[in-house]
Structures are given as structure tokens and as C-alpha cells.
């Protein structure tokens, strides 16, 4: 399941979205995010969510993978929505009395559900662009080199550490490490401890390998090619489309 969560095999398919320059996709996604999180009505976020699911279906991304990728962030959003619905805002939607306490749900809290749309936009970026091309795009936008360097290393070693965690967990299971809740807890602690130690050791070995190839604190990156005309047109069209939708959402009329 963890491998599915991080797998990028779909990003290597040849389709209309994977062929777009990642810099263009990144700008459009950022604009869409901005439009979604600043929208005052649920239409745009829901439209973004629906459109994203539609794109995922059209690209034949398995529904299980889409659900899996949305699950973790959506759980966080769900908790936020529930808490904020009952604690923030001034516009009551409904009220209940539970054990002598008056509990009121308010409209402002429910607006956090807008993040649903935002998450789905990011999901589409993630299933149509290999991580290393996103990092390349970030470099093109003059994002801190250190940050990009750390992101590259983290992404690269996620798979190495997942392999190790998988092997260790299998070895624990084969010796009944997860037979009872108590044993499971002990096994999980040992697994986490071992993974942290392994991460440090791996970091040391990788740093040595980097030094042997001339690393002195900064990763060198190659030049990015200029944007092609087609990508430029997609960028302009995408931004205009999002701006129009956002203005409609805000109720701005010509």
C-alpha cells in the first residue's frame, strides 16, 4: 500500500497532460489552488474536484490509487471541518443539545471543505508529472537550491527506506511480531527505531559517495530548456480560464 502511495508509474505514460512542461503545470496548479481556497462559494472547489476525478478516470488511473492518495490529506481536512464547524463562525446552520451542552454547527467551518478541491488539483499534478520534473520546475522558479536538494534526496530515499521497512516488517511478521496488540506495539517501536538508525547510516554513506564525486555542499543542476510555444499557449489559456472562473465565483460581472 505504501508503495502505491508514492508510486509514479502513471507519470511516465504518454498522454496530453504528461507532455506539458512541468513549469506550466506548476503555475496553473498554483493559480487553481489560489482560486479554490479564496472562493466564496462551493461551486469552484466542487468543480475542481469533479474535473480532477474526471481527468483521473480519463487517464485510467485506478480509482483505488486516487482514493488512497486522497485518503490521508482528506482525513486531516475532515477533522478540521468537523472541529471548525462546531467552534468557528457566526452563521448557525443547526443546533443540538447533548448532555446539557448546546452544540451549534456553523456555515463558516464547513467552508474548510474547499480544501477538497485544492487537494484534487494537487493530485492531478502528482499523477501526471514525475517528481524529478517537479523539482526541475521548482529550480526554474528560483526556489531555494537547498530546499530542492533536500526534496530530491528525500524523494529518492523514500523508496530505499520503504524497501527496508517492508523487509523488516515481513521479518517481524514471520516471527509473530504482530500476534497481539502488545507485541504489535513493541514491533512497531523496534521498526521505527531501526528505520531512524538506518536513515542516519544511509545519510552518512550517501554523503560519502557525494563527496567522492566532488560534492562540496551544493548539488549542481543542469540548465532548463526554454518553454516551447505550445506550452506557452497552454499556460496563457490555463491562467485566463482560471481567472474567469474565479471572477465568476466571486460574483464579479463585467
Amino acid at each position: 500500500m505504501m508503495f502505491d502511495l508514492f508510486s509514479d508509474i502513471f507519470t511516465y505514460r504518454n498522454n496530453v497532460l504528461t507532455r506539458i512542461d512541468p513549469r506550466v503545470k506548476l503555475v496553473i496548479v498554483l493559480a487553481a489552488l489560489l482560486a479554490v481556497v479564496t472562493s466564496v462559494r462551493p461551486v469552484l472547489p466542487l468543480a475542481a474536484f469533479g474535473l480532477s476525478l474526471g481527468i483521473a478516470a480519463a487517464l485510467r488511473i485506478p480509482a483505488r490509487l486516487v482514493a488512497l492518495r486522497l485518503l490521508a490529506p482528506l482525513s486531516t481536512v475532515a477533522v478540521l471541518v468537523v472541529i471548525q464547524t462546531f467552534t468557528l463562525g457566526t452563521t448557525p446552520l443547526a443546533s443540538w443539545e447533548i448532555g446539557g451542552w448546546a452544540v451549534t454547527a456553523r456555515a463558516e467551518g464547513l467552508r474548510q471543505g474547499l480544501f477538497l478541491g485544492a487537494l484534487s488539483v494537487v493530485l492531478i499534478l502528482g499523477i501526471t508529472t514525475p517528481a524529478h520534473r517537479i523539482f526541475q520546475a521548482l529550480r526554474g522558479f528560483r526556489i531555494s537550491r537547498d530546499w530542492v536538494e533536500i526534496a530530491i534526496l528525500m524523494y529518492r530515499y523514500i523508496f530505499v527506506l520503504l524497501d527496508r521497512v517492508n523487509d523488516l516488517a515481513a521479518a517481524q511478521r514471520l516471527r509473530l511480531g504482530y500476534r497481539t496488540p502488545r507485541r504489535s506495539l513493541a514491533s512497531l517501536s523496534a521498526l521505527a527505531g531501526s528505520t531512524i538508525v538506518h536513515s542516519f547510516e544511509q545519510a552518512g554513506r550517501t554523503h560519502n559517495a557525494m563527496r567522492l564525486r566532488g560534492y562540496s555542499g551544493t548539488m549542481p543542476f543542469g540548465e532548463l530548456p526554454a518553454l516551447e510555444g505550445r506550452d506557452q499557449r497552454i499556460l496563457v489559456a490555463g491562467l485566463i480560464g482560471i481567472a474567469v472562473l474565479a471572477l465568476l465565483e466571486w460574483g464579479v460581472t463585467p
Binding site: P130, A131, I152, Y155, R156, A209, G214, Y215, P220
Partner: peptide
Amino acid sequence: NDQLFAATVEEDVAFGPRNL
């Protein structure tokens, strides 16, 4: 795995020459 730290083959092999 100790030695391949870049995201792609090309970037990894280019790491040393770019450092030079």
C-alpha cells in the same frame, strides 16, 4: 543505493562532471 542519490540516471551520472 548508497551512491545513486539523484532522481534520474542522467542527473546522477552528470553529478560529478557538473561538480567539476
